[in-house]
Design a binder for these strands. Sequence first.
RNA 1: GCCGAGGUGGCGGAACUGGUAGACGCGCACGACUUAAAAUCGUGUAGAGUUAAACCUCUGUGAGGGUUCGAGUCCCUCCCCCGGCACCA
Length: 866
Amino acid sequence: MSKYEPSEIEPKWQAVWRKNNLYKVDLSKSARKFYLLVEFTYPSGDLHMGHWFTFAVPDILARMKRMQGFEVFAPNGFDAFGLPAENAAIKRGIHPQDWTLSHVKRMKEQFATMGASYDWTHEVITCLPNYYKWNQWIFIKMYELGLAYRGKSLSNWCPLDRCVLANENVENGKCWRCGSEVVQKEIDQWFLKITDYAERLIWPDKSEGPERSRGKETVDWPKSLIEGQNNWIGKSEGATIEFRIKNAELRIPVFTTRPDTLFGATFLVLAPEHPLVKKLTTKEYQNLVKEYQKRASQKSEVERKVGDKDKSGIWTGSYAINPVNNESIPIYTADYVLMGYGTGAIMAVPAHDQRDFEFAKKHNLEIRQVIRQLGSKANGQNATKIPTIQVPNNLSEAFEGPGILINSGKYNNLHSKEASAKIISDLEKVDLAVKTTNYHIHDWSVSRQRYWGTPIPIIYCRKCWSDKGKVISDKSIEGRDYAIIDGEKRAIVPVPLDQLPVELPYEVDYTPKGRAPLATAEDWVNVKCPSCGGEAKRDTETMDGFVDSSWYFIRYLDPQNDKKLADTKLIYEWLPVDIYFGGAEHTLGHTMYSRFFTKFLHDIGIVPFVEYAQKRVHHGVILGPDGSRMSKSKGNVVNPDVEVAKFGADAVRIYLAFLGPYDLVTPWNPGGINGVYRYLQRVWALFQVESGTLPAGRQEWKVESELSAEDLRQMHKTIKKVSVDVENIKFNTAVAALMEWLNYLSDKSKERQLAAEEVNNYLRLLAPFAPHLAEELWDKLGFSNGKSIHLANWPQFDPKLIQSEKVLIIVQINGKVRDKIEVEADLGEDELKRIALDSEKIKIVIGKSKIQKSIVVPNRLVNIVI
RNA sequence: GCCGAGGUGGCGGAACUGGUAGACGCGCACGACUUAAAAUCGUGUAGAGUUAAACCUCUGUGAGGGUUCGAGUCCCUCCCCCGGCACCA
């Protein structure tokens, strides 16, 4: 009997599979298509355990589906643009492109050792012009529809990387890449108008029915993601109400979700950055206000968000007029009001908003109750006799719920909801309010002051502006028609689609010098304007890498297409993706952006669906043995290559599948893989012994013993369990079922020879999990006839054989188990009850007690109540 | 604070629509093999108690209540961990 040597059999079969092009997909066969997508990877250099977990485990599903007769499309590629390449290049003087492509090559070699069945013939590498050309194409399409625009905004600026960061890339006020403190800086940059899609990106309530991805099918995405995205979009409905200023023409719009509390608005608060603050501040307060603004601006993101919530603020010296009662109320500026949300100004209702309450307490402002809590007994009797004014400061906190209006003039006694509607409509008549919906989500800033990304396909032309600009300047909009570059207005001219791609020049100075690296490539920057032929300059920034990953799943279908994103027929037949594996960390980033792109591509007629993945599955995280995240600095990195060398790829794959639920975050347990390795050795040993009994050259097993009902039951039960569990991404219990059956077969093999049917089915069930071992035994034991096990049919189970002739009935007295009796299956209730009462143990427990009641669950239990 | 997911042996985790809690694996203990160890194989392994041994008794799924013949599972209150968001008007 030979020993199980994964290091011999694994490379051997990997070579055979590669040579036979075993996993080649035929996209013309879409009738039973199965598109399995795994988030593509950044070419960081070395395949680590996380990559194995991410790719090797879903491969189990890919392989099962293939054996089940699906045409499985499981492409792979590289998300190849990004900061690390550039940072490494700056540090070590290697060109980002060379760095990236050499990593791609190396990682593909490592991928090969995984024994995974990903298809590389449709590989996408985002840093190649034939890919990013289409980023540029989409960008221009968005520009044409007003969805890409140049805007100014306070942006997260990483001083070390000299780069703008998206909110999603700021972690606790620090840059996600380098960890340095992020500061706020006003920057001109390109935005994609994801806010136009905010409403459509909201996941509907289940009760309303999810947005359809195709026909009648509904999508199956994790609840945590759905809730997370909805919160991030942060829709809130209310009104914008305008407060006039005493003795001035100015109006201050404020956003509120509670127009019903308007009579309780005793002051206004403007964000320190609010442009009206300057105009509103009276002379005597100017110095104080300026000083406050300065202090507020110096607060870092962390301080302002996490730190003190002490409700600092200062009076501007001005008053506004409350539109419902014409009262004069003071105008403050305070940093608890954010410029980035709503109008940057609020009406403060301290009795009914906790923040306003705290501010009012601190600055000694009036707190006026205008909402009475429903069902509040204290006031219940006085429902008709409403106190005209509440004594200030008799409240310990704000009451934020809805209720019945008091102290609100003609709106008294109305419920919050009707009062809100009425107040808005009354104010709308005098042009002081308008119904408004606000969203927390902001437009997506996509400009990056970096080299290693997709060039923004825009040209700025001075001549076009001076020729045409003056004529249309009244209607021209900054950011859409022109941009101010180096203090000078220039027309924005998109690169014509037929001139794409705008290729990234190879020779640039990408070391940080305070301006975008592409600006140093002067031959590239200076171009003839495609519109007027005059001297013009290219945009020197590049796109956020999340643009690349927002539609790559489409490109996989047709990565070489030079005319379109992908062939239309393929898009219609193969998308949406059937299952998409990826990390929960992409809840607010990548998956949101790609949903946005999908809806946009739908709107311009490229794709027929509005959700790109039928099902989304989150993977977990493998921590180091010490329970913390694997990192080189902690020295707790488990290197998959080392584990593969010791135990083989099959053992690593199964261990990763077996650890627990797939979304589990759990440490690597060095003992655990040993157990799995032991299991594979037992498989090997058991089936090897059996093969020894085969006459040489025999292609079939001789069944020495008839399989008993129990033998068949074990077999069919396992087939069912593995099939169902893999389908439902419960790999851990599928592995457990395989182990159980092995234990059973192992016991049986002491009494009789295993049947060919058993071994054959076992190997086919094992094949997705341990593809090399299964292939080796399949071949060695003569099942193959030269055909790979991975092309064999998936075993079928017979539900009738799973049912046992005998069942174990639990007999309980008052809900406690008192006996277990094996009986024929499917006995009637009376019969079961009779058998239960016949039991000696039961008789003893019942004794002389009277039976009150008995519950019989067929094939399960009898519960006797005494 | 808000949103989401959880809390089950020494550990990772099982448990269908409420119906034998602890599958499977790790670890540990004992035994076999061995000069010995490793490897491998076998047996046991929630806790406590009675016992020659238990297939005996009791207690047990974060805490406390509740619904039910019966609750890890459903409901209420609370505590704790993890992930995300956070002065969003």
